[in-house]
Write a protein that binds this DNA or RNA. Structure first.
Lengths: 221, 221
DNA sequence: CGTGATCTTGAGGGAATTCAATGTCGGTGG
DNA sequence: CCACCGACATTGAATTCCCTCAAGATCACG
């Protein structure tokens, strides 16, 4: 069990002195907070006080099942927003996967503004809808074979990277395994096999090069 | 391949002569349309013109993977709303699992109203959030063993039934298998095993009685 | 250079699938 | 009425894919 150390407990965000104008993006509110690798941002079951935006680094959200297994629900990379909740408590935990800078916005502020500002609700709705799409895609991923899951994961990652075919994995094999519902051994073996058929190249364990897109697309179900 | 026969093609809903007052529920708009067993309500990729509410019967939404496998995303029972979409096209197909009566509401109407009515956006946001919760639960279900999935499914169904421990399955073994990411054989075997340990009773293949809740809860991970 | 964390590789086992056959049920027409 | 039919469900045997357990290999870091 790791020390719980949420942003709230770290002192939280300063509230803006004046309410912000409607339909403004979250970007300019407050300064990002720094989180170190594996540091907890919030824990499952805690009051959902903030909405977060990744400015740098990366975040994983996950559930811990009662048999100890961990299911990662999503990875959030720079630009992504996380912490959306239906209820007043977080249904997942969130941790930084690398040293990260993360912006927090008080949920009460947003919700208060949403109460009479259509644009704000629309914004939240938009975020929720995107999250829903992501989740549905995740379900489809979990039905496939190990190889298809890994390939699908790599292709999904690639769309978030600047250089679409050559990038560093920000997460461990364990993270990937917990996201895909596999074991680290299976993830490792699958990557090795993908390299052996020249679909990808692994200069180092975290450095992936997709060298044969068509082959990957073909393997992706 | 089955004949495509969406509601739109069946003539669609009459538009209300006057826009409805804000924050009104969807219930009173128009009359429900009847669908027969296995009839398509809309198809993946079609323009998302309507939002639907089940008045009677049941609906499945699903994706067809390119290798022919089918993943059922959700079952909707009376009172449930489906057809929520991020984009302007449906990302899933929907079919009636039994003879059903289904209410349709034009999406453009809702969205137009949402443009300046907070309550309407809030309502859509609420529905989307619920859907997101459901989807997240579905992911957790897919990580478990076959037995845990089946038990989880039964317990989930039970919460939607009037008589919580004695109900008819509205869907086939194939539907259940496609929802749980299993085969029909595994579903069948698992149900048989659950009966053999007296956790459930199966007077007929569609009639389930949960006779030992504590045992089921224990088996549910 | 040593240490721990992470990753890879191998061997064996188990859970779910695949393939195949049989059983059950509801409807339909003789 | 009942025999037949097709759809749906169950059961068994063999196989496959992934997991578990175990041993090394590699890497980062003090």
């Amino acid at each position: 069990m790791q020390v719980r150390n949420s942003l709230a407990r770290k002192g939280g965000r300063r509230q803006s002195p004046n309410p912000l104008p409607p339909s403004q993006s979250f970007d300019m509110m407050g300064a990002p907070t720094a989180f170190s690798r594996n540091e907890e941002i919030f824990g499952e079951g805690e009051p959902a006080e903030y909405l977060y935006k990744v400015k740098a680094g990366g975040v994983r959200t996950f559930n811990t099942l009662n048999d100890g297994r961990r299911q990662i629900g999503a990875f959030y990379l720079p630009g992504d927003i996380f912490g959306l909740e239906a209820r007043d408590r977080y249904s997942v935990s969130a941790e930084a996967i690398t040293r990260s800078r993360i912006l927090a916005v008080k949920r009460t502020e947003i919700m208060a503004r949403a109460a009479d500002d259509v644009a704000t609700v629309q914004l939240v709705l938009d975020l929720t809808t995107k999250e829903l799409q992501r989740t549905q895609g995740h379900i489809l991923l979990l039905l496939k074979t190990a190889q298809e899951r890994v390939v699908g994961f790599l292709l999904e990652l690639a769309t978030h990277e600047d250089n679409h075919d050559d990038f560093e994995l920000r997460m461990t094999r364990q993270d990937i395994a917990d996201y895909l519902g596999l074991t680290i051994e299976t993830v490792s073996r699958t990557l090795t096999r993908l390299e052996s058929v020249s679909a990808i190249s692994l200069p180092s364990s975290r450095h992936v090069i997709l060298c044969n897109r068509p082959a990957l697309e073909r393997l992706n179900s």
